[in-house]
Design a protein around this nucleic acid. Structure first.
Lengths: 208, 208
DNA sequence: TAGATTGTTAATCGATTAACAATC
DNA sequence: TAGATTGTTAATCGATTAACAATC
């Protein structure tokens, strides 16, 4: 694949936001939009949107703006979400159950393909059409299915250990739900989901 | 309350990360840490940690660093999470169920105090000790319990509408799980949780 | 054509980092 | 005391924005 050097990570992080808004516009059956309109919806300046997109090519037309479906497809290609990714979920407690049942992944190109847990009571359980497998089978199963992405929903105490095993199994992208920062090699991407951190961020401002 | 002018939002956003790491250190029964050690754990420079903290006061000692419990407590105070916040959850589909059942909120100071949905089949349902109430009762209940924070887990199509009602009921902090950017007045804080956006951010880098 | 909006350059703004005196 | 580490200043780096020629 042609490498794309040098594009700031913060720009990459905004592309999914653009994608989300464009998807909404498709649902609204709009055909064209402008950097200004998109910016207003997202609370982002129009200049920033144009600058961000300019890293990847020229997708608009002076005077008329952007064809929504076209731009949507282009951003999908850039992010590589114009195809399906297989996902392993490790840890099927409350949270893992919810992830396994969540219907929002599939329509956006992510397919939960395997569930793992270490507790003997959980192994063999059927969740959303999948059978929970032991963590000891993780490496083989990840290779067998060619799974490339993992979601980590084990308790914080075990997260680093499990992350190490995932990385050993070839995983290079981890969505971590455990409230702990993971130490990983530089070629492994980690994103964090910690609702409590977001809540704490907001309570700071709740002063009268 | 004394207003704290001028502190960059990006700094506020890092405080929960520091809190998380300090909490882990408390569990590990460490007593002191340094900006360097903390930075190494978090992948952040020591200078940034010291700079961030310096916005709020002087919490360390030259030569010895920071008393972990003390700094933890100070950051809790700054973020106002040294007390309990009541939370309303709107939308009890898959996701709302998971939120209502999730045990990770309470130990970190957030208490799910009310559940709302608009579907007649859901109203009256018992989830995690709470009874699902109709959205029409939202305003009264939020006032009655003095709830200040809401989590939004309704479908994207309804999210803006429900957000408007929450704001009308006096809510000024919304954790939005719907994959849509909300339009809100400037005195209302919104944070977003969109796992798919995080996944899409990572797949960009999965090129060989 | 006139109006609108792009892509891009240069200026501005703000965040991060390096360095160090102060001091535990 | 010697060594370590803070809090802070100034320098650097990078991201955002304003402005505009190009052009649909």
């Amino acid at each position: 694949m042609g490498s794309r050097p040098n594009i700031p990570d913060i720009v990459i992080g905004r592309l999914p936001i653009y994608l989300r808004a464009l998807y909404r516009m498709i649902q609204e059956e709009k055909e064209y939009t402008s950097s200004q309109e998109l910016g207003e919806r997202l609370g982002i300046s129009s200049a920033q949107i144009r600058k961000d997109l300019s890293h990847f090519g020229e997708f608009g037309k002076q005077g008329t703006g952007y064809n929504i479906k076209f731009l949507h497809e282009k951003i999908r290609q850039i992010l590589q979400v114009d195809r399906e990714w297989l996902i392993a979920v490790v840890g099927v407690g409350d949270l893992g159950h919810a992830i396994a049942h969540y219907r929002g992944f599939a329509p956006r190109g992510f397919h939960v393909a395997a569930l793992f847990d270490s507790a003997p009571t959980k192994i063999g359980e059927q969740i959303g059409g999948l059978t929970v497998m032991p963590v000891s089978a993780m490496k083989d199963e990840i290779h067998r299915q060619k799974i490339q992405v993992a979601m980590l929903s084990v308790p914080a105490e075990h997260a680093q250990q499990v992350a190490n095993e995932l990385i050993g199994a070839g995983i290079r992208a981890i969505l971590n739900y455990a409230p702990i920062t993971l130490a990983v090699p530089p070629d492994v991407r980690v994103q964090y989901i910690d609702p409590v951190a977001h809540l704490q961020h907001m309570t700071y401002y709740l002063r009268s």
